[in-house]
């Protein structure tokens, strides 16, 4: 699995051109991950954050992120 990969001179597959907006999309996806897994009041009001915490509670535990 390594030998093919590493011949640097001959890229056997064409690279995919990644447009600039894709990086903004990536940042948004990372933000969404933060929001559902970690948001506890840094951005939301306390009651809204509490609600979000309770709704995402089981998945947060299951994903292994520190929950409470």
């Amino acid at each position: 699995m390594t030998t093919v990969a590493s011949a640097p001179a001959a890229p056997s597959v064409s690279a995919v051109r990644v447009p600039v907006w894709a990086w903004a999309l990536l940042a948004f996806a990372v933000f969404a991950l933060y929001f559902v897994s970690q948001e506890n009041g840094a951005l939301l009001s306390a009651p809204a954050a509490q609600m979000l915490h309770e709704l995402t509670h089981d998945a947060r535990h299951a994903l292994g992120v520190p929950c409470h």
């Binding site: 709704l55 089981d58 998945a59």
Partner: peptide, 9 residues
């Protein structure tokens, strides 16, 4: 909610 969260993730 946990299931929905898993799909969003």
């Amino acid at each position: 909610g946990g299931a929905v969260t898993a799909v969003i993730v």
